[in-house]
Structures are given as C-alpha cells and as structure tokens.
C-alpha cells in the first residue's frame, strides 16, 4: 500500500514537512512537551513510554528500556534522534508511523526528536532522568582540629 501512494501526494507531504520544519525551527517556536509526549501539531506526534528514568544517586547512569512511537499525517522518510548523538537512532522510509524499543542509558535528561531525513525536528519529547538521592556538594578541604 505504501508503495502505491500517488507521487503527487508524496510531494505534497514532503513540502508540508519541510514547511513545518522551517516554521518550528526557524521561527523559534517551542514544541509542546508534557508527559513524555511532544508534538509540533496534531498531525505529528512523538511519544516515549516510560518517559522517566530513576537512578538511586544523582550522577549515576540511569537505565531504562523505552518504547518510542511516532506518527505523522503523511508518509515520508523520518528518523528519530536523541540529542546526545548526531546519528539517528532509527529511520523509516515512506511511512507515516513508527515504533521501536530503545535501551536508554544516560546520566542526564535528554530530548528525542522526530525529523524528516536531513531536516529540522518536527516534534521533540523529553526523557527525564531523576534520582532519589541528590549529589552532595563537597566543601573546600580543610582541617578541623590538627
């Protein structure tokens, strides 16, 4: 079915995607980000479940198997990125939705984004890293008695 898409519609989708990317990246608008789900518009959705990872101590690497899902209004070539790497985590060709499992490992909160290949983000969603015990700030070394 995907192969059977009409060429005109694909062209329309690409133009629309490019336009959206231009608007949301160039104009500096912020994307909606809440509850692990971010969207540039109702036509583009990117979500992560679970959207939070909890480590015992601040600064530890937090590990979480997450499921990333996305959908757009029109099929196209899309990739999911996370901000710590320039390379995409996964790409899809000529499709309007995707889902994949990812072994998340990070010591800090990061953002995932959905982008048409080679273009700016259509949607961004955060993966929050939290912890139970915060790191203690060390004081200047000193001698108390001796």
């Amino acid at each position: 079915m995907r192969e059977g898409r009409h060429h005109k519609r694909r062209l329309s989708m690409l133009l629309r995607s490019a336009c959206m990317a231009c608007v949301f990246s160039g104009a500096g608008l912020s994307f909606a980000q809440s509850g692990g789900q971010g969207a540039a518009s109702e036509d583009v959705r990117l979500s992560i479940k679970p959207s939070r990872c909890v480590a015992l101590h601040e600064g530890q690497i937090c590990y979480q198997n997450i499921t990333i899902t996305w959908r757009t209004a029109f099929p196209g070539n899309y990739c999911v990125y996370w901000e710590v790497a320039p390379q995409p985590l996964q790409c899809w060709e000529n499709t309007r939705s995707g889902r994949f499992e990812f072994d998340f490992q990070s010591a800090a909160s990061v953002q995932f984004s959905l982008r048409p290949l080679g273009q700016s983000a259509l949607a961004i969603t955060p993966m929050r890293v939290a912890w139970v015990h915060r790191a203690r700030q060390r004081k200047r070394l000193n001698w108390r008695l001796f």
Binding site: L56, H57, Q60, H133, R136, Q137, R138, K139
Partner: peptide, 11 residues
C-alpha cells in the same frame, strides 16, 4: 551511597 570520595556537606 556509592561514594568514591570524602563527601562533606551541610544537610
């Protein structure tokens, strides 16, 4: 606590 150094703090 996984401490690897002599932490000192108030709190």
């Amino acid at each position: 606590a996984g401490r690897d150094q002599a932490a000192s703090y108030d709190g």
